[in-house]
Design a protein around this nucleic acid. Structure first.
Lengths: 126, 126
DNA sequence: CTGCATCCAGATAGATACTG
DNA sequence: CAGTATCTATCTGGATGCAG
């Protein structure tokens, strides 16, 4: 702590690091596909292909990329069964399930205000 | 209802339309800048420039674009004061404030699992 | 101060082909 | 079936200049 007088205090440095990390995580999960994957998984365990069918419009590549990202952040667990043909299953971890609860809130909000939003759009576009 | 036997029922059609709209709205708000703008506004009324200072790293252009989008969806209200220099204020509408509550949940989640995620990342990257 | 238009570099996502 | 790699078109976002 002898460096405290020259640099910011460790506490401040920690806070800045945490903020930057939080922003990074926020950017990771605040994207359409990640949120839809978490919603689709819910309490279930799904295979890659099942997940692909479940989420309309997602491409093979986007699903792979986002699953890797979610796995890296510890939100989904990936289980490989060593059989042929390969069987890979995905399931939410505890942090993932906790996140899902807040995403449910987002979905509820969307449906509750669907009418408001549609009306507002028409007014704005006029 | 005589057409029911040939096309989907009107109810089903409505559901599909609502789903597609919901997905569209989801794509609109599930992006980093929109969520950060709503968080920054909170219960306050802020000017364009204040908002710009409040949200670290956002560009003039992104702030404008996202504010227009949020205004179009009826989440923020834009008030122009006819003075020079121009004074334009933004504030959350009722739907916007409702959405903010769920975004708060997202922020809470991020901070609660910051440690989990950081650890998981290190393990994954090894 | 706020907003709009333009330009351009980099990111993103889809399509396709190939592997175990 | 699941994953990776490559190519390419499109989109995004930042920088800049100009207008009200």
């Amino acid at each position: 702590m002898v460096t405290k007088q020259f640099t910011g205090s460790p506490d401040e440095a920690d806070l800045r690091r945490a903020d930057s990390l939080a922003r990074e995580i926020f950017s990771d999960i605040a994207n359409k596909w990640a949120l839809l994957i978490i919603e689709a998984l819910g309490e279930r365990t799904l295979r890659f292909g099942e997940l692909r069918n479940e989420i309309e419009g997602i491409s093979h590549k986007m699903l792979t990329q986002n699953l890797r990202m979610l796995e890296r952040n510890g939100l989904v667990e990936r289980t490989v069964h060593p059989v042929v043909p390969p069987r890979v299953e995905y399931t939410l971890t505890e942090p993932g399930r906790a996140l899902r609860v807040t995403i449910d809130g987002l979905c509820d909000w969307t449906h509750r205000y669907l009418g408001h939003i549609e009306g507002s759009r028409h007014r704005f576009d006029a």
